[in-house]
Structure formats: structure tokens, C-alpha cells
């Protein structure tokens, strides 16, 4: 087990090193950062002085070495736009993204898993068909379209919900619903398919033959075995948290890291952009590892050390 963990951790580290290197050079190819630190068309001499102050006039290799050195002591640099620690900026905003995503994921799981089970159990019935139709609609609807529609109905027309901000749980309701819909649709589809596979297995017929109630057959025997692919898809969604939040955060102005990364990209704020991409990479690596470990917990037949 420990051997497996060490191997996976090493693999994750290599992935992160590749990401750090790629993002460092890619951001610098995207344009001149100093141009965005000053009002448009500022004096070239002032731009040069500012570049020198932030070490942006050094060779790209020297900048890379300095960046890596800083990383080892937990220094991810200063935002060129806000002129303060990148870590501090992310620390302020990450909680909003985590909150928003947690609400959305909870909604998606709490509603999506039961709907997926119902859709499997009533595969050819009206309930199953309706759920799958809704799931496909949910999956196919771009979240910015739904966001604008919800704002128009619940804020502009009915005045029931705030349209922007992050100062109370109510502010997260609409963005969480919008964010949850495609995740919910995916969970419904995967739960249904996994359940259909399991429902066809001999051991379920055996369970029923033993006289177990349908609740125990489905809840204990079928669902547990169907959980592995569902956990995988939830894991993938958590890994993609930041990317999924970008548009929703921009529309509802919930002040999260997705929004931050978009503006850092537009404004060539290299240190913020670099840390954002590294954060996403770390998230993907860590969540993948956790999901693998969860397999063993859910299904004792899976021996992680052997995989």
C-alpha cells in the first residue's frame, strides 16, 4: 500500500513539475505583462523601469530559476496587478470557490444519485425516460445561458434572489444550481449505467432468491457495487472544480479563483496565472489519488497495491 502511494506521489510530482515548467514559459509567450501594469500607452521609459523593478527585464531562464527557488520556500511571487502575495490573494478567494463548488456538488450528488437509480429501475417506464431526457437537456444547456435566464427570472422579474456577490449563503444559491446542473446530469447518467450493469448480475438474483427485501437488494448489494464508476465521475468533477467555476463566477460575481485566473490571463499577471494552473494540477493529482484509494474502501476486491 505504502509502495503504491509512493509511486503515485512520485508520478504526481513529475506531472506538477512538467506543468510548472510549461505554464511558466507559456505565460511569457503570451505578451508583455508591464503593458498591463500601467494605463494604456504609458511612457516606454516608465515601463522599462517597472520591468526592472519586478525582474521582468532578466533573461527568461534567470526568471525561471528565481521562480523555482521561491517555490521551495513557499514564495509564489507577487501579483503584478495587485502587487501583493499571490498566496494571500488565493487565500482570500479560494474559500468562495470551495463553498460554491461544495453546494453545487452536494446538490448534484443528493439529487443525481437517486434519480440515476430511479432511471435504472424504471428503465423503460415514464419516470426513467423523463429523467434521462432532463439529464440530456441539463447536460446540453450551456451554464451561461441558464445563468442569465435564472437572473432574469429570479432577480430581475421576481426579485427573490440576489444576482451577484458572495456575502451570504443565499448569494450562492443560483450559481450553485447553475453549476450543479451539468454535474447532476453526468451523475444521473453514470449512476443509471452502473446500476443497469449491476442489476443484470447473478449475485443480485441470488440476493432476491434468498428473500432479501428490495430495499436491501438495491441499497446494499446493487448500489455499493455501482458506486465505483460514480465515485470516479465525482472525482473528475472535483478535479475540474476551478475550470467549471470560471464562467459562473464571472456572471454572478462571486469572487472566486476561476474569475481571478481569467482576469490574470487577460492582464498577463504571470505569478497569479502560474499559481492558478499549479493549483489546478495539484488538485487533479491529489483527487485522482484519493479516488483510487476510495475504490479499495468501497470495493474490497480492489487491491490498490496491485493496480
Amino acid at each position: 500500500m505504502l509502495d503504491y502511494l509512493a509511486k503515485r506521489a512520485l508520478g504526481g510530482l513529475v506531472t506538477i513539475i512538467i506543468v510548472v515548467t510549461a505554464v511558466f514559459f507559456a505565460t511569457r509567450l503570451s505578451g508583455n505583462a508591464v503593458e498591463f501594469m500601467l494605463p494604456p500607452g504609458s511612457d516606454p521609459a516608465v515601463q522599462a523601469a517597472l520591468a526592472a523593478h519586478y525582474g521582468l527585464d532578466q533573461s527568461i531562464w534567470m526568471q525561471f530559476v528565481r521562480y523555482i527557488q521561491g517555490m521551495f520556500v513557499g514564495d509564489f511571487g507577487i501579483s503584478l496587478n495587485e502587487r501583493r502575495s499571490v498566496l494571500l490573494i488565493f487565500a482570500e478567494r479560494l474559500p468562495n470557490t470551495i463553498l460554491l463548488f461544495s453546494y453545487a456538488l452536494a446538490l448534484a450528488v443528493v439529487i443525481g444519485v437517486p434519480l440515476g437509480i430511479i432511471a435504472a429501475l424504471d428503465r423503460k417506464g415514464p419516470a426513467g425516460s423523463s429523467i434521462m431526457t432532463l439529464a440530456f437537456v441539463g447536460y446540453a444547456t450551456p451554464n451561461f445561458v441558464l445563468a442569465i435566464l435564472m437572473i432574469l427570472v429570479f432577480s430581475f422579474q421576481l426579485h427573490w434572489l440576489p444576482s451577484s456577490g458572495a456575502s451570504s449563503p443565499l448569494h450562492f444559491l443560483m450559481p450553485a444550481v447553475v453549476l450543479s446542473l451539468p454535474m447532476l446530469a453526468e451523475i444521473v447518467r453514470f449512476t443509471r449505467n452502473a446500476m443497469l450493469d449491476v442489476l443484470a448480475q447473478d449475485y443480485l438474483r441470488t440476493a432476491r432468491a434468498k428473500g432479501l427485501s428490495e430495499r436491501v437488494v438495491i441499497g446494499k448489494h446493487a448500489l455499493r457495487n455501482a458506486a465505483v464508476p460514480v465515485v470516479t465521475i465525482i472525482g473528475l468533477q472535483v478535479a475540474g472544480m476551478v475550470a467549471r467555476c470560471v464562467l459562473v463566477e464571472a456572471i454572478f460575481a462571486t469572487k472566486g479563483v476561476g474569475d481571478l485566473i481569467v482576469f490574470a490571463t487577460i492582464g498577463r499577471d504571470y505569478p497569479v496565472l502560474q499559481f492558478g494552473v499549479i493549483l489546478i494540477a495539484v488538485l487533479v493529482v491529489v483527487v485522482s489519488l484519493i479516488v483510487d484509494l476510495l475504490y479499495a474502501v468501497i470495493d474490497p476486491r480492489v487491491k490498490v497495491a496491485a493496480t
Binding site: 437572473i151 432577480s155 430581475f156 426579485h159 440576489p162 444576482s163 451577484s164
Partner: peptide, 11 residues
């Protein structure tokens, strides 16, 4: 659109 809605919504 969000700015305008925030105004109409009294936010």
C-alpha cells in the same frame, strides 16, 4: 446584464 439586474433588484 448582471450589473443592470443588481440595480433592478435593489442590490
Amino acid at each position: 446584464a448582471t450589473r443592470l439586474t443588481a440595480l433592478a433588484n435593489g442590490e
